[in-house]
Design a protein around this nucleic acid. Structure first.
Lengths: 230, 230
DNA sequence: ACCTGAACACCGTTCAAGT
DNA sequence: ACCTGAACACCGTTCAAGT
């Protein structure tokens, strides 16, 4: 069950912060939060814990750097295409983050941690900037910029985070947990709730089974965009 | 620096799942995620780890139960007042969750975990139901219920989560970290960003310093409500 | 300046044994 | 049925020592 190590022989290139962060992301992708340990990291990098601590202060900083690296890659893509409209630009940014969390489900929790606990770090401004540029292009007064950008960031990160597990199970080839089963189990559980306490949740349980995460995500985003430009 | 134990003598009441969850919430409130350990728990409950494992399966289940208990208390309050309008009802539910995260900052991360990894658990339907009831009272077609309720849940939890640290530092009497300083530091860091890379973020840095979390939260919520009822 | 690896304190969890 | 507490495997982190 343990991942086979690809390099138990001596490493050739020198260690670097970049190389360490790269390995951390790989471990997180492969086995989630619990997969990132200093022992797994030292094995993969063919080194000792002291070497890693020379380049990063502690595990928290390493998680922050891994989060920043993935977010930077996600929001850096968009300048490539010039959107038809500001609305389209916002959809592109939003989908970029949505897909980043889809590929790296551990990102959802880390994002919540980074944004709330370290707002002066690099992750928060990066996300704020890419959303904000599109907001500025929207036809809203300057005094509304901050509110609009905040609301969009909250919605996008909230939605992306909550879809993380769904999305991950959708591409996961691990036996026993595919997307249809996952949604089916949730829908079934919701339908068996107490009718007196949960009338609404029961009433929409069937829509849960049929819905598409991405469509749902974009539909909600459009509701917010409508409100902003109203 | 360690919290003084209140009961090192033998406990009088029998142990119960409820009592354990209650102690877990207290530890989480006092010292955050890191504060909840089985050792701290056994000391506080004057028992051994085996006794706790008789009532809960593992730490994950305990965190889930603590989260559910706090959320249940937060959303249970609202039937007491009957809202003037569905919009007002949604604001009440939203503020209830906002305040719960304000009082229990660890809730932000746990909510993200519960909602994404365990959607068939008790937390997700609880939140969905309290939002959904108000949505149903809104004048929107049945086919839009699910989208509207989802969008609201995403926004509310995303926003509440990202405000968690701000809010906590606002009431925290711990020396060196009060709310004004915290926001000031963030605003200052944003103003020193590279002008070429971060024009938007720099431009609104001063609004960060002056904004009120709760007003901002409600303003964003109203944008979404406008979009839903448009 | 950069790396090694043994050692430390602490963690979640188990389980034979008690009542 | 419920609880005890020693023990186990594993974790993040440190640090004297090497190059």
């Amino acid at each position: 069950m343990t991942t086979r190590t690809r390099r138990s022989q001596r490493r050739t290139e020198a260690l670097s912060r970049e190389r360490i962060v790269e390995a951390a992301v790989e471990l997180l992708d492969a086995a989630g939060e619990g997969g990132l340990t200093f022992r797994a990291l030292t094995e993969r990098l063919a080194t000792g814990p002291g070497a890693i601590y020379w380049h990063v202060a502690n595990k928290g900083e390493l998680l922050g750097a891994a989060t920043d690296a993935v977010v930077a890659a996600a929001v850096a893509l968009e300048p490539a295409v010039s959107p038809d409209s500001p609305q389209d630009g916002i959809r592109t940014v939003a989908l970029g983050l949505f897909e980043a969390i889809e590929e790296h489900p551990w990102l959802a929790t880390q994002l919540a941690l980074q944004l709330s606990r370290h707002p002066s770090g690099s992750v928060t401004p990066r996300i704020f900037e890419s959303i904000g540029r599109q907001v500025r292009a929207l036809d809203v007064p300057r005094s509304s910029w901050f509110t609009a950008a905040s609301a969009l960031a909250h919605y996008i990160l909230g939605a992306a985070g909550q879809n993380a597990a769904n999305a991950a199970s959708g591409r996961d080839p691990v036996p026993g947990v595919d997307r249809a089963e996952f949604l089916d189990a949730a829908a079934k559980a919701w339908q068996e709730l107490d009718p007196d306490d949960y009338p609404f949740t029961r009433a929409i349980a069937d829509q849960v089974r049929e819905h598409d995460d991405r469509e749902q995500f974009l539909a909600g985003l459009d509701l917010l965009l409508t409100g902003i430009t109203a």
